[in-house]
Simulated assay, not measured.
Amino acid sequence: MTITLLGVVGSPSPGGRSFAAARALLDGAAAAGATADVLELADRPDPEAIQRAIEDADGIVFATPTYRARSSSLVKGVLENTGRGVAGDTRAPLLGKATAIVHTGATAHHFLAVDDLRDVLGGFFAAQVLSPGLYFEGADYVDADGIPTLTDRARELAEAHGRAFAEFTAAVRAAPAVRALRPLL
Rank of each mutant, 00 (worst) to 15 (best):
I54G: 11
A24H: 00
S71F: 10
F136D: 02
A180M: 11
D43N: 11
E159H: 07
S11P: 02
A100I: 01
A139N: 13
R68Q: 13
L181P: 05
F124Y: 15
G33R: 09
Y135H: 08
H103E: 09
R84P: 03
A20V: 03
G138F: 00
A98I: 03
R44A: 14
A174H: 02
Q128L: 11
P65I: 01
G146F: 03
R163P: 06
L117H: 05
A180K: 14
I60H: 07
G96K: 00
F62S: 04
G28M: 04
A171I: 09
L184H: 05
T104I: 04
A113Y: 05
L94I: 02
G33S: 12
P65M: 06
P47M: 01
K97S: 04
V129N: 09
L79F: 05
R68K: 10
G10W: 06
P93H: 07
R44P: 01
Q51L: 14
G96R: 07
T82D: 02
D89V: 08
A160P: 10
L117M: 13
G77K: 04
E55I: 01
A144V: 13
G77N: 15
S72F: 00
V75D: 03
R70A: 15
A170T: 03
L6P: 04
A139C: 11
A22G: 05
T149F: 03
T104Q: 06
T104C: 13
A174F: 00
A32M: 03
G16M: 08
S71T: 14
A139W: 00
T99G: 06
Y141A: 06
D43I: 09
G96F: 00
D43K: 13
A87H: 12
V38H: 10
R17W: 06
A158R: 09
D58N: 14
N81V: 03
L41I: 11
D115F: 11
D152Y: 07
A49S: 12
L181W: 13
V61L: 15
A100H: 11
S71C: 08
A171E: 13
T107V: 01
R173W: 09
I147T: 15
G105I: 05
R163Q: 14
D140E: 06
A34K: 09
S72E: 00
A49P: 11
V8L: 13
S131P: 08
L184G: 08
Q128K: 07
A21P: 12
G138L: 07
P65S: 02
T104H: 03
A170P: 07
T90K: 10
G96N: 02
A36I: 02
L130Y: 02
L121F: 01
